[in-house]
Amino acid sequence: MKFVAVTGCPTGIAHTYMAAEQLEKTARELGHEIQVETQGAMGIENELSAAAIAGADAVILAADIAIEGADRFDGKTKIEVPVQTAIKEAGSIFARAGAVK
């Protein structure tokens, strides 16, 4: 499957990036494609293009903050989880995505 994701945490120093790393790593292990945008203390990095969003089967929002540009994902299948879940149980997120699809 193809995923896009956004991660973000309140201070934007650690969890944002850990979640991004974990989602990327787990997606690789499960044979999925993923692009992760981080919204941390350095602002938005690896920003998702409209095309990437359009081409994704599902959107993972792993954030403890209100993310920027949430309207970009209107109409898409969204899986919204706390950032901790992406770090600790990334596998379950992809499993959920499979179920909703």
């Binding site: 944002t16 990036y17 790593k25 941390g40």
Partner: peptide, 17 residues
């Protein structure tokens, strides 16, 4: 301090490895 943030985000990612 953006450059330092890069380091910290790298560290955060490494911890996952």
């Amino acid at each position: 301090d953006q450059s330092h943030m890069t380091i910290l985000s790298q560290l955060a990612r490494r911890i996952m490895q």
